[in-house]
Simulated assay, not measured.
Amino acid sequence: MSAYPSSNVETARKAVAARLRELRLDAGLKGHELASRCGWHKSKTSRLESAATPPSDSDIRTWCEVCGVADQAADIIAASRTADSMYVAWQRLQRTGLRRLQESRVPLYERTRHFRGYASHVVPGLLQTPAYASALLSAVGRFHGAPDDTAEAVAARMNRSRVLHRGDRRFVLVVEESVLRYQIGDVRTMGGQLGHLLSVMSLASVSLGVIPLSARERGIWTLEAFNVFDEQRVHVELLSAQITVTAPSEVALYMRAFAELREMAVYGAEARGLITSAADSLT
């Protein structure tokens, strides 16, 4: 697998620094000229452009204003803020076990009012049964060499799923039909999971779409799994790490991809038919 562009903090910081330098050059300013207009020592400009010193939000706003591109400040600030957290290896997240990882995400899910999720390989965590989650998390923990606390992690995941039953929230999820066919656990576990999907579809807060294997003229190819939280934050799941995206332009890109994926999905009776067919194939 090729390295993800944001695979380390240093690369992310250098990307921010390079972007600032490009803005200065596009504005036709020399380093000392920009420093003078910003009201700081010329060495600060050099330190920021070399990524020797991370810029503050105020530094970025001032830089963009002086270069005549104040509208680009929001994106650069978002990229700078997430340089230390945009790429976090699963090994780091799971070093104390899976329970704490599940629990750490609860506040984010609880404050999210509009959740969008796309799943290309396994059933979304919010819709998993205890048995399915146990089989999946056990395999994940074993693969990454995490401490075995599967039972506690499953309990934490089920606790997180309670947000589905709280008012004033909307959950829009799209899964590939292959998710329904890829067996996790034994036949009984998978059958119970598919039955649970049929049940959860009746919740007023949930919209579940399935992209059929027979879908023609796909507007977009199969992507890695990702979740969007209130159009403010995106979590992308890779084999090696979780990517956190907060730059407005990048969040908008995932929003556009989700909209296209959602258009390809079927809902209601058609979706239930695909789930039922997958369940029947188990026996």
Rank of each mutant, 00 (worst) to 15 (best):
residue 154 V to M: 11
residue 219 G to M: 11
residue 154 V to T: 05
residue 195 G to S: 13
residue 218 R to E: 05
residue 173 L to F: 07
residue 182 Y to T: 05
residue 176 E to A: 03
residue 162 R to D: 09
residue 180 L to C: 07
residue 201 M to E: 05
residue 225 A to S: 04
residue 167 G to M: 13
residue 207 S to K: 14
residue 162 R to V: 02
residue 159 N to G: 14
residue 224 E to S: 12
residue 220 I to E: 04
residue 207 S to A: 15
residue 207 S to I: 07
residue 191 G to M: 15
residue 205 S to C: 02
residue 157 R to C: 01
residue 171 F to V: 00
residue 194 L to S: 11
residue 170 R to Y: 14
residue 214 S to N: 06
residue 224 E to V: 10
residue 194 L to I: 03
residue 195 G to F: 00
residue 197 L to N: 09
residue 181 R to G: 08
residue 214 S to G: 04
residue 207 S to G: 13
residue 177 E to N: 11
residue 194 L to C: 03
residue 185 G to W: 06
residue 170 R to D: 08
residue 212 P to Q: 09
residue 200 V to M: 06
residue 172 V to Q: 15
residue 207 S to L: 14
residue 218 R to P: 00
residue 165 H to E: 05
residue 174 V to S: 12
residue 196 H to Q: 13
residue 173 L to W: 03
residue 209 G to A: 13
residue 209 G to F: 00
residue 155 A to G: 10
residue 177 E to C: 07
residue 189 T to N: 07
residue 172 V to W: 10
residue 173 L to S: 10
residue 197 L to S: 04
residue 154 V to L: 08
residue 200 V to L: 12
residue 170 R to P: 00
residue 163 V to W: 15
residue 182 Y to L: 12
residue 154 V to Y: 03
residue 156 A to H: 02
residue 220 I to L: 12
residue 223 L to F: 11
residue 223 L to K: 07
residue 162 R to M: 10
residue 215 A to G: 07
residue 164 L to D: 01
residue 163 V to K: 13
residue 167 G to R: 07
residue 216 R to N: 04
residue 166 R to Q: 07
residue 160 R to I: 11
residue 208 L to P: 01
residue 170 R to H: 05
residue 224 E to A: 11
residue 209 G to E: 02
residue 208 L to K: 02
residue 163 V to Y: 03
residue 178 S to P: 00
residue 172 V to Y: 07
residue 210 V to W: 00
residue 163 V to Q: 07
residue 188 R to L: 04
residue 202 S to F: 14
residue 195 G to D: 15
residue 222 T to W: 08
residue 222 T to G: 05
residue 184 I to C: 11
residue 164 L to S: 00
residue 201 M to H: 12
residue 225 A to I: 00
residue 222 T to M: 10
residue 161 S to I: 09
residue 176 E to Q: 05
residue 202 S to W: 05
residue 157 R to W: 06
residue 208 L to T: 00
residue 216 R to A: 15
residue 170 R to G: 14
residue 188 R to T: 06
residue 189 T to C: 08
